[in-house]
């Protein structure tokens, strides 16, 4: 129980997939201009990462490892994640049009997101079991969402700020992202080794 809690905490703060591991930078910059959009994207990522972590763990444990074809990990994971997201989209489309509206275009967008794939692969590298993988995926998703929302909040304020012309738009966003990342480095050491 304690380990699961530590895994979630670690995935959210200490090993934040965006700000510490630098995965999924593309949506982090792309979808963080408005808080509404970033919440939608974040929800889709949490959803997708949790499921992808569980399913890819099963693929690794029951197909790749027994047949000694671990080198196919990346391509197999991509295949499975893509199919999974597609399947989820269909199901959501049918059972909950409201959820579909909320997640909207973000669900297909994250199919090939490197953060989702990254979580799946790092789960295997860390030798997590099924439950730990799922929790790590969930935590990583929450961490991603948090980073995205913080970023969106800052960017909404940045729109109002007098920024030098040369830094307007993407340059200042990158600067802010790097400062955020440095700030998150402060969490390293929260959990003693």
């Amino acid at each position: 129980m304690e380990k699961l809690f530590l895994i979630i905490l670690s995935a959210i703060l200490i090993n934040n997939y965006v700000l510490i591991k630098f995965l999924g930078i593309c949506p982090f910059v792309g979808v963080s201009s408005q808080i509404d959009a970033s919440i939608g994207m974040g929800a889709a990522v949490i959803f997708c990462m949790t499921l992808a972590s569980s399913v890819t763990w099963a693929i690794q444990a029951y197909i790749l490892t027994p047949f000694k074809i671990d080198f196919l990990q990346t391509i197999a994971f991509i295949l499975v994640i893509a199919a999974l997201v597609q399947f989820i989209e269909m199901v959501i489309n049918k059972i909950s049009p409201t959820l579909k509206q909320a997640l909207g275009i973000y669900l297909p967008l994250i199919t090939t997101n490197c953060a989702v794939l990254g979580v799946a692969i790092l789960n295997i590298r860390s030798n997590y079991n099924f439950l730990e993988s799922s929790f790590n995926g969930f935590g990583a998703g929450v961490g991603f969402t948090m980073a995205l929302i913080i970023m969106a909040g800052i960017r909404e304020r940045l729109d109002m700020a007098p920024i030098p012309k040369a830094l307007k738009g993407v340059p200042i966003t990158f600067l802010v992202a790097s400062l955020l990342s440095v700030a998150f480095l402060g969490f390293v050491g929260l959990i003693p080794e």
């Binding site: 693929i59 197909i63 790749l64 047949f67 074809i69 196919l72 391509i75 197999a76 295949l79 499975v80 893509a82 199919a83 999974l84 399947f87």
Partner: peptide, 10 residues
């Protein structure tokens, strides 16, 4: 293996 995974997902 990959074909099976693909076919199954498909």
């Amino acid at each position: 293996a990959l074909s099976l995974i693909g076919a199954f997902s498909g």
